[in-house]
Deep mutational scan, measured.
Amino acid sequence: MKATFQVPSITCNHCVDKIEKFVGEIEGVSFIDVSVEKKSVVVEFDAPATQDLIKEALLDAGQEVV
C-alpha cells in the first residue's frame, strides 16, 4: 500500500531525518520519501503498518499532518 501525507511543518533536513527515523521504526514500512519542497511524505507499507500508525509517528516526530 502507498500513502501520501501533507506535512506543512517540514522545513529542513533535520525534519527529514527525524521523520525517516520515526516512520522507519514502524514494522511493515518499506519505503519513505520526504520532500521539503512539496512538504509531503510518501510511504509504502504493508501490514502491520497502517496509515494511522504512520500519522501517529509523524506527530511523535513533532510534525503537523493535514
Score class of each variant (00 low, 15 high):
15 C>L: 09
57 A>Q: 03
30 S>I: 13
34 V>R: 02
5 F>C: 04
33 D>I: 12
45 F>N: 00
9 S>T: 12
37 E>S: 11
9 S>A: 06
9 S>H: 06
14 H>K: 15
36 V>K: 05
46 D>A: 13
38 K>F: 14
32 I>Q: 00
55 K>A: 07
60 D>P: 03
5 F>T: 00
34 V>M: 04
38 K>V: 05
39 K>I: 05
60 D>A: 15
28 G>N: 02
6 Q>R: 13
11 T>Y: 15
54 I>T: 02
5 F>W: 06
17 D>F: 12
15 C>A: 12
49 A>I: 01
65 V>P: 07
61 A>P: 02
6 Q>I: 14
9 S>V: 04
59 L>M: 11
26 I>M: 05
43 V>I: 06
30 S>Q: 10
5 F>V: 00
49 A>W: 04
40 S>H: 10
46 D>P: 01
42 V>M: 11
50 T>H: 04
15 C>Q: 12
2 K>T: 10
8 P>Q: 08
36 V>F: 08
2 K>F: 08
32 I>G: 01
62 G>P: 03
27 E>M: 10
31 F>P: 01
39 K>D: 04
32 I>S: 01
31 F>M: 08
40 S>K: 11
44 E>S: 10
16 V>L: 06
56 E>T: 12
8 P>C: 10
44 E>D: 06
47 A>L: 12
30 S>F: 12
54 I>F: 03
66 V>W: 07
60 D>Q: 14
46 D>H: 11
49 A>L: 01
64 E>V: 15
50 T>I: 02
22 F>R: 09
6 Q>Y: 15
60 D>I: 11
33 D>P: 03
47 A>I: 08
32 I>T: 04
32 I>P: 00
57 A>N: 02
45 F>T: 00
52 D>Q: 13
46 D>Q: 13
3 A>V: 14
7 V>G: 02
19 I>S: 01
27 E>I: 11
41 V>K: 01
19 I>P: 02
29 V>E: 00
66 V>R: 09
6 Q>F: 15
59 L>C: 06
63 Q>T: 06
59 L>S: 06
37 E>F: 10
13 N>F: 12
45 F>R: 00
62 G>L: 14
40 S>G: 04
39 K>V: 04
10 I>H: 02
44 E>A: 10
10 I>W: 10
30 S>D: 04
29 V>T: 02
58 L>C: 02
62 G>S: 06
48 P>Y: 02
49 A>Q: 03
27 E>Q: 11
29 V>N: 01
12 C>E: 10
63 Q>F: 15
